[in-house]
Design a protein around this nucleic acid. Sequence first.
DNA 1: GCCAACGTTGGC
DNA 2: GCCAACGTTGGC
Length: 153
Amino acid sequence: MTASIWLLKTEPDEFSIDDLAQRGVQGEPWSGIRNFQARNYLRQMKMGDIALIYHSGCAQPAIVGQAMVIHEAYPDAEALNPSSDYFDAKSSSDNIRWSIVDVRFSHLFNTPVTLKQIKLDERLASMALLKQSRLSVSPVTEKEYRVLSTLAE
DNA sequence: GCCAACGTTGGC
DNA sequence: GCCAACGTTGGC
């Protein structure tokens, strides 16, 4: 049973891979996902799965490193907090619509793999990242992962 | 700051 | 169930 591979987007101004690294072994709850498709992917994640960290909304959009899933999906209680940015009026305590996974920093890429590079590499042409550019959680195939890992050396 | 892509909402 | 209006994401 091999680990699945995922890509998680984050805006480095909000929470960067360096912030994740600072959390150490305890990791970080990947909260605030408010898109059903992204949530459904979160719910498929298993302990030990690989999560590639992608920086978006910045000068150089790129995959910058790797993390690991250390806690499978659980309800995102922020959805119940009316003063939270992530409040969801359609969630209730017995039916929280949104989920979180916890991820732990693994390592930085020696060379970040930029979006530009990904777009130019025909081996990566079918990446979900390119197909659905607005999705903040997406799957990565093993082949894609191998190519990305090589580019990141 | 602009705009394309696209998910969500709500009226009908 | 359709679809227009609206909001958000994210690259440039």
